[in-house]
């Protein structure tokens, strides 16, 4: 079977399929499905898949379900940015290793060991302190950057949000309990927030207003009263479900969850509770990791070693020289 260059060139290698030929004269040319490559890589892919499956089962799953994880979770429920702490722990371990190695080095005299060890510790301390400080200081600003990023994402991917059946159901729910028409909602927003973008529908440019209004709604007495009544009804229904399950012999009937309203503190929570877009949660988390890793990377690998420690080393060398000269004189 002869495969011409043009036929291969017309293939979509990514999906191992050929596009239809624009030239009708080649309509019956053989298709290039990439099966040969698949056959070669299949065993490798299978092995790799087995390896990752093994890691998922024997490392990740065991780690999550370990006693250590349980203790850690209980003690770290208020910790917000684990990425920074892990970066700092990694740095501490390696800096510690180098400090110990320096101190154990027989080729260096004790003065030199001490100087180098102090240098190691000082670098680590300055870097860690600086990284944490900058990371914390940038928090609020980065939160605003993240909100704007999210607004851009929502604006660009409107379809993903508006076609969300969960969101639609919630909108319907709101309409049911309020009897508010869409025109009234938007009119209200415009009256309350004159700077809001005039819109008939959801507009990502108003995302901060929506978040604020959501929190106000959750905080209102009317809503709280509504929730109280609503949850009492759910209790009654759950009792009925339990009674029916007992008759049927079902030990674990599925009960209806109570509504537990909670205010949102950032775009991530707003997305999880209201917008419910899977990708946006990952991206917003990624924004946080990006900031922290960039700050720690810059401080550990650039600011402290290049801009701080170089001058500090020169000062140290000058001090050491002076000290030695005094010793020689004595």
């Amino acid at each position: 079977m002869q495969v011409s260059y043009s036929s291969i060139n017309n293939c979509d290698y990514k999906h191992y399929k050929c596009r239809p030929y624009p030239n009708k004269g080649h309509a019956n040319s053989p298709s290039y499905t990439g099966k040969i490559e698949s056959q070669i890589f299949k065993p490798v892919q299978r092995r790799y898949n087995e390896l990752t499956e093994w890691i998922a089962n024997n490392y990740f799953a065991k780690f999550y379900q370990s006693k250590f994880a349980e203790k850690f979770i209980n003690k770290s429920s208020n910790v917000k940015n684990m990425t920074t702490h892990m970066a700092a722990i990694g740095s501490t371990l390696i800096s510690g290793m180098y400090t110990i190695r320096t101190l154990q080095n027989d080729k260096l005299d004790s003065d030199r060991k001490k100087t180098l060890a102090i240098n190691d510790v000082l670098t680590w301390g300055l870097s860690t302190l600086g990284a944490y400080t900058i990371d914390r200081k940038l928090g609020k600003w980065w939160g605003n950057v993240t909100n704007k990023y999210a607004a851009n994402y929502i604006d660009k991917h409107k379809g993903e949000f508006l076609n969300n059946p969960d969101l639609q159901a919630l909108i319907n729910k709101y309409a049911e309990i309020n009897g508010i028409d869409v025109k009234d909602v938007n009119k209200y927003i415009l009256e309350k927030y004159p700077e809001a973008i005039k819109t008939e529908n959801f507009d990502a440019r108003n995302i901060n207003i929506y978040m604020k209004e959501y929190n106000n709604f959750i905080d209102s007495e009317d809503f709280k009263n509504y929730i109280e009544k609503h949850n009492k009804k759910i209790d009654k229904i759950n009792e009925q479900i339990k009674a029916n399950a007992k008759i049927k012999g079902d030990a674990n009937p599925k009960l209806i969850s109570k509504i537990i309203p909670d205010k949102v503190s950032d775009i991530r929570e707003f997305n999880l509770d209201v917008l419910k877009n899977k990708n946006l949660t990952t991206h917003v988390d990624g924004m946080g990791v990006l900031k922290s890793l960039f700050v720690f990377g810059m401080v550990y690998r650039y600011i402290v070693p290049v801009l701080v420690m170089k001058p500090a080393n020169k000062i140290g060398a000058w001090y050491h020289d002076k000290h030695k000269k005094q010793e020689v004189k004595a």
Partner: peptide, 8 residues
């Protein structure tokens, strides 16, 4: 329960 301040 959510507060959908969106058009619908």
């Amino acid at each position: 329960l959510k507060h959908p301040v969106v058009g619908y």
